[in-house]
Measured scan of single mutants.
Amino acid sequence: MATGGRRGAAAAPLLVAVAALLLGAAGHLYPGEVCPGMDIRNNLTRLHELENCSVIEGHLQILLMFKTRPEDFRDLSFPKLIMITDYLLLFRVYGLESLKDLFPNLTVIRGSRLFFNYALVIFEMVHLKELGLYNLMNITRGSVRIEKNNELCYLATIDWSRILDSVEDNYIVLNKDDNEECGDICPGTAKGKTNCPATVINGQFVERCWTHSHCQKVCPTICKSHGCTAEGLCCHSECLGNCSQPDDPTKCVACRNFYLDGRCVETCPPPYYHFQDWRCVNFSFCQDLHHKCKNSRRQGCHQYVIHNNKCIPECPSGYTMNSSNLLCTPCLGPCPKVCHLLEGEKTIDSVTSAQELRGCTVINGSLIINIRGGNNLAAELEANLGLIEEISGYLKIRRSYALVSLSFFRKLRLIRGETLEIGNYSFYALDNQNLRQLWDWSKHNLTITQGKLFFHYNPKLCLSEIHKMEEVSGTKGRQERNDIALKTNGDQASCENELLKFSYIRTSFDKI
């Protein structure tokens, strides 16, 4: 039985969820670079991206490699990797027998973001014989899940209580170790020597080791999670996991709180800001991140802002960003909400898709409305799209047979046209069989910064309504002859009103 693990408890099935942008060198404390989270699957090609990484700022997932063999891993080693800020997950990587050479110096898994409450997941690794993470000293947050690894031993010899604050939620089941077939031998045991430290858990006094050649490092209890030197002297209180010299914040392997210019500090002093819960960055760093993602459509890219001495992905609820200094300031009234469309555009074809934009005031991208039916549609669209004030790209209304009016965009005031449909149009209306009105132009103002209007096959939309939009939106004169079809717009509506004058002759039985 794995020490510190839980057996036999019912657990939810383990679901495996399925960018080499360097964020800056980590400095003297770390020998390499800070790398983003990685999802490495199918083959070993991307694994080489770990070569210079000291910190993975995010998670590391290595999974679904069915053609790899043990010899493929023999020359692979990433000794610079010290810390993973989120979680480490391995799933069905064939041929991998140990992690001792792959990650010989991995010391800390912070667990800032977890995989279903777990910071370390080893699942269905069919050839893994031992973990071998002999320098792993601290899992700051989260638990361990090690399950269905039929060859995995050296679990009962690990004292997880020396690595985690609590072992109650560890789930370590259905491994070879369960069948008591392992016969784990710690260093020196074969020669009758006791080389590794022994600890007591559940009444068992057991030597602690990761492999037959690597003991588990056990520091004096007084050192807590700070770690200790090879001689057993406690590291500085700002260290986490390990250090090369005692009581020196510049000799830590990793930091308990924050890293700044080669030393570990309790908090980031001005003019620095907390970033990702582990390091200090200056304003320029946060500003660069903001600008890199301002026009990016890459998933996970955030326009970072500053709030409460932190550089964070977005302002919290009730705050909006001051564009001059990136500071989050309290909103006066309802907060603006910028919604970034991942692929640059979004099609609204149902109430469900409209709900995804609920509360958005600025759309960074283009909207395509293609709704053919739905219950209580006008009210639903207004509830979900009615706060949109600005669209950076274009607005396209296409084959939306259920629409009679666009009044559900009740606050839309600006279409920038930074991206144009077919390279020309910022407003595009095609084949809307029941569209009769755009907006009530006596109450609604709309500016279209650039781009043209396109109207074709809107049989109940009168040309007068379209011409009014040209005047109000500032697009009059931009359109070419064929942009607004004269014969297919309003051709099934009563669009022309003329005053009919009647004269009559009164007659009676005795007068003409």
Rank of each mutant, 00 (worst) to 15 (best):
L29E: 11
L29I: 01
G32L: 11
E33L: 09
E33N: 08
E33P: 13
E33S: 15
D39M: 14
D39P: 01
D39V: 15
R41A: 13
N42Q: 11
N42A: 05
T45K: 11
R46I: 07
H48C: 04
L50H: 01
C53W: 00
V55D: 00
L60R: 00
Q61Y: 03
I62V: 14
L63C: 05
M65K: 01
T68G: 07
T68V: 05
P70T: 10
D72H: 03
F73I: 14
F78I: 11
F78C: 03
P79W: 14
L81S: 00
L81R: 00
M83L: 10
T85L: 07
D86G: 04
D86Q: 12
Y87P: 02
L88S: 01
F91E: 02
R92Q: 06
Y94A: 08
S98W: 02
P104G: 02
T107L: 05
V108D: 01
V108K: 02
I109T: 00
R110G: 09
R110D: 00
R110E: 06
G111V: 00
G111S: 02
R113P: 03
F116H: 01
A119E: 00
V126A: 15
L128S: 01
K129S: 09
L131N: 01
Y134W: 14
N135M: 14
N138Y: 13
N138D: 08
R141M: 08
R141Q: 15
S143Y: 02
E147G: 09
N149M: 02
N150C: 05
L152I: 11
L152V: 03
C153N: 02
Y154L: 04
L155V: 15
T157V: 05
D159N: 13
W160T: 01
W160E: 01
S161P: 02
L164E: 01
D165C: 14
S166R: 07
V167L: 04
E168W: 11
E168G: 10
D169H: 15
I172P: 14
N175S: 12
N175M: 06
D178K: 07
E180W: 05
E180M: 09
G183P: 10
D184K: 14
D184W: 15
C186V: 03
G188F: 06
G188Y: 07
A190E: 07
A190N: 11
T194R: 09
N195M: 09
N195Q: 09
N195I: 11
N195E: 14
N195D: 08
A198R: 08
V200W: 05
Q204L: 10
Q204S: 11
V206S: 15
H212C: 11
H212M: 01
H212R: 10
S213G: 12
C215Q: 08
C215Y: 08
K217Q: 05
I222Y: 06
G227R: 03
C228V: 08
C228S: 03
C228Y: 04
T229R: 06
A230L: 03
G232A: 05
G232W: 07
L233F: 07
L233P: 04
H236R: 01
H236E: 06
S237W: 10
L240M: 12
G241I: 02
N242C: 12
S244Q: 05
Q245T: 05
Q245V: 12
P246Q: 15
D248Q: 12
P249V: 03
T250C: 07
K251V: 06
V253Y: 15
A254K: 03
R256E: 05
N257D: 04
N257A: 09
N257W: 03
Y259V: 06
D261Y: 15
R263Q: 11
E266S: 15
P269W: 11
P270L: 10
P271G: 15
P271L: 06
Y272A: 02
F275C: 02
F275Y: 06
D277F: 05
D277L: 06
D277Q: 09
W278Q: 05
R279F: 11
C280P: 00
C280Y: 00
F283E: 13
F285C: 04
Q287T: 12
D288M: 13
H290D: 03
H290I: 05
C293K: 03
K294T: 14
S296A: 11
S296L: 08
R297T: 05
R297G: 08
R298V: 10
R298Q: 02
G300L: 07
H302T: 13
H307E: 08
N308Q: 10
N309M: 11
P313A: 07
E314I: 02
C315Q: 04
C315S: 07
C315N: 01
S317N: 05
T320Q: 05
N325P: 05
L327D: 15
C331S: 03
L332T: 02
G333V: 03
G333P: 04
P334G: 06
P334F: 09
P336R: 07
P336D: 08
